[in-house]
Design a protein around this nucleic acid. Structure first.
Lengths: 239, 239
DNA sequence: TCCCTTTCGTAACAGCCTGTAACAGACGGG
DNA sequence: CCCGTCTGTTACAGGCTGTTACGAAAGGGA
């Protein structure tokens, strides 16, 4: 088994070096890059098995770089973003990222995620995986993105409205990451001048359909002062 | 300038040979294939610059083959389909076809389309073109797919409902090709057991917003006994 | 512990969207 | 010209969605 080669992309020199050292000590070959041009150079220089890409990349948008990488390459991409970053990380997931790590993060958690993504990528190239990844399993529930169907742990289909489905998809794309109401609203393409309570109402409606006890939510939890979080791991797989 | 090499895919031997001869006489190199496996063999044997792909391909679905080709290759694909074919041709456009020819067709029209698509492909590879092709111009109107905005010839933004927008997109994907109500309904994911008049009502609503005189539609015309047609050329370009 | 402020949950409401049903007009063929 | 079929249009009912208002819950400070 060959040693995987990672590419760490961050314009913050301290973070970049910290990550590079840590991953090398964990047994990987590691290249580093700070700009889109350096990414291109690293890719041209040789094989890269996984890219760790910071969302905020100076003047360049990590999301756009992610989309560009995804169009031309098949290796998995993990986006690294700050907890309070705007909705760009959600957009990133839509355009091609394989996983997310929220800053500040536990390095061991990062390592586990890298290994999990690499392991999965050895079985299934990222493009194929993404094409098949229209099925989400969480807390016993299943969301089938191809059919747009939601199935309860008991096996019943539950009808969600369009907006409810969109909200669920946003939460599924960011498991265990608290999202602010502004982030959710932006991801849903909601009007910016709204009253600010629409997301709460929508969340209440979605909870009413999927929570065992909507008054004490176990899946879609409130993070007071921040927003909401999907408090469950999400398995993505083939439909 | 090198001579373009085309791949003609049709399981009907007469049609395949007619097309092959005609295109050779028009100055192209032409390969022929009847099945997905023969397509793979032709692609493995050497460069192909454009594929003419029949939608109905024996037991195989031309749409699925188109999607598969698009995932792995960048050459343009023109789908050839019968006028009365089901909604597969619309699905084909969504998954990767660059253009359509409806059978029965004028061979000169086919040749012009092949040349136009080849010319465009020389400037912009198909993947890049498709990524940029979120802007449609027709009859003075503009639909911007990225922003989901419709702009009138006078420059005003017109608000379309979600369903109206979807209908417009279906029509835009099939310029000058009459679509049956069943085809449109299928493309819109409508319930099959509906009254059958929903498309007419929806079309009326869309006309009310974009036709100068909705009672005498000039853009979205009725084809009595068939359905509706977008009676305008559509220019696709960058946003 | 108590009180105050902030945040969140929720019910009611209004407006918009969407398809159905019904009817009348248009169209085409005999 | 007449008849049957097709299409346009209107009214309606039901669902969806965000706003508003109010009360409950949570958290922090005295």
């Amino acid at each position: 088994m060959t040693i995987a080669r990672l590419l760490v992309v961050d314009d913050d020199v301290e973070m970049r070096e910290m990550l590079t050292e840590y991953l090398r000590a964990s047994g990987f070959f590691v290249n580093a890059a700070a700009t889109g041009a350096e990414i291109d150079a690293a890719l041209a220089a040789g094989r890269i098995d996984l890219i760790l890409l910071d969302v905020m990349l100076g003047d360049e948008s990590g999301v756009e770089i992610c989309a560009s990488l995804r169009a031309d390459h098949d290796m998995p991409i993990i986006l690294v973003s700050a907890l309070s970053a705007d909705h760009q990380r959600m957009a990133g997931y839509e355009v091609g990222a394989d996983d997310y790590i929220a800053k500040p993060f536990n390095p061991d958690l990062l390592l586990a995620r890298v290994r999990a993504v690499l392991k999965r990528a050895r079985r299934t190239p990222s493009l194929v995986y993404r094409r098949a990844s229209d099925r989400f399993e969480f807390a016993g529930w299943t969301y089938d993105g191809k059919r747009d169907e939601v199935t309860s742990p008991a096996g019943f289909q539950v009808a969600l409205s369009r907006r409810e489905t969109e909200l669920l998809k946003v939460m599924l794309a960011n498991p265990r990451i608290p999202l602010t109401r502004e982030e959710i609203a932006a991801a849903l393409g909601a009007e910016e001048e709204g009253s600010g309570r629409a997301i709460d109402v929508l969340m209440g409606r979605l909870r009413g359909k999927i929570e065992r006890d909507p008054k004490a939510p176990a899946i879609l939890k409130t993070v007071r002062g921040t927003g909401y979080v999907l408090a469950s791991d999400v398995e993505r797989g083939a439909a």
